[in-house]
């Protein structure tokens, strides 16, 4: 349902994504692992044009974009078909938890305020933050902020939800509640593309684990295969290091 072909990204001289091919089925949960600086974040950011790719095609549902010819409209279409959870939460500081979730619904999707508000309150209830609806991000803990961040991405109802190391910036005490929420999202067969260093979580949530190194996909498969009987040397070294 999501099809990526030859996705390439260069920063100056360095090729950060080297002709990536990747298909993701509807409802599939794909976890991306790999050493630092191998282009995991860049892959996610290219998929919704936070970084503009240099070559390749991205097909997402009925949106198909040749990135070399992508117009502003194409970029918006991709962004509206995806949602993004950031490592540092990136909540809107001038909006309450509820307003953070409503923003896309009202401004981008053009839904009536009352309907958007109801949806935001429902999502907040699912994230366990019903009592924080009117709090600003500055008054929330890291874990609570990230749960709002996930709620903001959930509410959009995007075909693909992307998570870039959603727990890496968190104090250890808040990691559990964020992973729990992600498990609940996964239970609904939401298509997810997740970058994480939480290997136990990857094993448990992933339908497929993708190992990236040097801007390429080196190995991919079910977590049992990739994590327990790795073929490539680089993957073996990486797994020893994170174990």
């Amino acid at each position: 349902m999501i099809s990526i072909r030859g996705l390439t990204k260069r920063f100056g001289e360095t090729t950060v994504l080297d002709a990536i091919d990747l298909d993701i089925a509807a409802g599939e949960r794909v976890v991306v692992i790999g050493p630092s600086g191998t282009g995991k974040s860049t892959l996610l950011r290219c998929l919704n044009f936070l970084d503009r790719p240099d070559a390749g095609t991205i097909t997402l549902g009925d949106v198909s974009v040749d990135v070399t010819r992508a117009s502003k409209k194409d970029a918006l279409a991709l962004r509206r078909a995806t949602s993004f959870v950031f490592q540092n939460y990136a909540l809107f500081a001038n909006k309450t938890a509820k307003e953070n979730i409503m923003e896309a619904l009202v401004t981008v999707q053009g839904r009536p305020r009352a309907q958007a508000e109801q949806r935001a309150l429902d999502v907040l209830a699912e994230t366990g933050l019903a009592n924080k609806a009117d709090s600003y991000p500055a008054a929330l803990s890291g874990g609570q902020q990230q749960r709002v961040g996930i709620g903001r991405a959930m509410a959009i109802g995007a075909d693909l939800m992307m998570f870039d190391e959603p727990t890496s910036a968190l104090d250890p005490e808040w990691v559990g509640e964020v992973l729990d929420l992600m498990r609940r999202v996964a239970e609904r067969r939401q298509t997810m593309l997740i970058v994480t260093h939480e290997m136990q979580f990857a094993r448990e949530i992933a339908d497929r684990v993708v190992f990236m190194d040097g801007g390429c996909i080196v190995e991919a498969g079910p977590p049992g295969e990739v994590l327990d009987s790795p073929q490539d040397d680089r993957l073996r070294r990486f797994l020893r290091r994170v174990a």
Partner: peptide
């Protein structure tokens, strides 16, 4: 001075530049 990641969050939910400026960046 408005945190760059908020700009990206606004773009990631599909806001246009003008919407992002008006609703997120300029108020702050």
């Amino acid at each position: 001075g408005v945190d760059r990641s908020q700009w990206e969050a606004a773009q990631s939910i599909g806001m246009t530049q003008a919407q992002m400026m008006r609703r997120i960046v300029l108020p702050q």
